[in-house]
Simulated scan of single mutants.
Amino acid sequence: MSDTLLEVRGLQTWFDTRSGTIRSVNGVDLTLKRGEILGLVGESGSGKSVTGYSIMGLLEAPGRIAGGSIKFYGKNGTAVDLVNLSEERMRALRGDRIAMIFQDPATSLNPVLRVDTQMCEALHSHARMSETQARDIAREALNRVGIPAPDERLKSYPHQFSGGMRQRVAIATAILNKPELIIADEPTTALDVTVQAQILYEVKKLCRESGTALIWITHDLSLVSGLADKIAVMYAGRIVETGPIAEVMAAPRHPYTIGLMKSIPSNNPRGQPLYQIPGMAPSAENLPTGCAFRPRCERASAACESVPEARDLSRTPGVEHMVRCFHAQEVNA
């Protein structure tokens, strides 16, 4: 069995508008192994969600994939490029081998259909089974995400649930077919802390037991630190730092990653004002030349007027810690 599940190379996702081309994703490289959990973090507008939609083939006009490849590997090691896959074949993959959990459950639940109808349909569309078998699997999935009285809830409509309960139904639906890859776009934002912890535990357990890989899109570094095996930090459409979660959190090398770490309230000295990265993230429509973080970076130099290449600065043999910065070797060296 091939260990690699997903390989994204040079992904470019652009939106052509009247005012110009918005380069939301501008050369993203990602590699994900089976059973691995990747935390994709960054500020709002950095391109995290668009990367997820690109992998799922859910872009709508005027969005388009302008370049790059998204290779999804089978268990025999053969790969398909999701960029060039027909819509019919992509539909066969979605919900079965690849699933997505959206930030807003309203985008994934039909308001006029009962929960059992929607969950059983997700099962019947990819496998042959009886209605009783489908309901049993749906009931177990609701149990796993902490929904009480699942038999009663299966007969309910989405509007009869709270926002947090609807999100749990959406998560349960995504894990029904035990997909090989789940892309989760900040799915626990609407949940309270105790339910969030339960969801994270179940998702992590699913990945460990079934070999499901997970891309968890978030801006919450503290959440990622307890969930992910690997982290990828995104800024202005590019991955600026990626590596094992323990190594990156212990010794971040990119100035932007360091800024994000300092911004965590628990890392702030008591009685001192909360740290914030100076300036604002640039618009994807009007990116600065060279390194996009240059206008906000205290280490910026003339070299930063050109785009830095990603370099491996790992301290552990056989482990990649890629950083896209000219001055990364000066930090935590």
Rank of each mutant, 00 (worst) to 15 (best):
D220Y: 06
P265F: 04
V248S: 03
A197L: 07
A197E: 04
D192K: 08
L214K: 02
A236C: 07
S225V: 09
Y235F: 09
G237P: 00
P252T: 00
S225Q: 14
T218W: 09
N268K: 09
W216V: 13
A197K: 06
A246S: 08
T242E: 10
Y275P: 01
I199M: 02
T218E: 03
E247L: 01
V193P: 04
G211H: 04
T188W: 06
A232W: 00
S225K: 14
K205W: 10
V224P: 07
L287V: 11
T212I: 09
R253Y: 00
V248M: 03
S266F: 14
Y201R: 13
A213E: 04
A197T: 05
Q272T: 15
V193G: 05
A228S: 05
A232H: 03
G279R: 08
P282A: 07
L214Q: 01
D192C: 08
M261T: 15
W216D: 12
P265N: 05
L214A: 00
V193A: 13
V195H: 07
Q272I: 11
P255S: 09
W216A: 15
Y256D: 03
A284F: 15
P278V: 10
L200D: 12
K204Y: 07
A251F: 02
A236G: 13
Q196E: 10
P288K: 02
S210D: 11
I217V: 10
Y256C: 03
L200P: 15
L214F: 05
T212D: 12
A213W: 06
V203T: 08
G271H: 05
R208L: 12
R238N: 07
P278W: 08
A250F: 03
V224G: 06
V195I: 15
N267E: 07
V224L: 04
P273F: 11
I245W: 00
R238P: 01
M280W: 13
Y235S: 09
V248F: 01
M261R: 12
E241Q: 01
S283N: 11
G279S: 11
G243V: 00
G237Q: 01
R208E: 09
L287Y: 07
K205Y: 10
I231T: 06
N286H: 15
P244L: 03
K230S: 04
L260F: 02
S222M: 08
M280F: 13
V240P: 02
G271I: 06
W216I: 14
T194I: 14
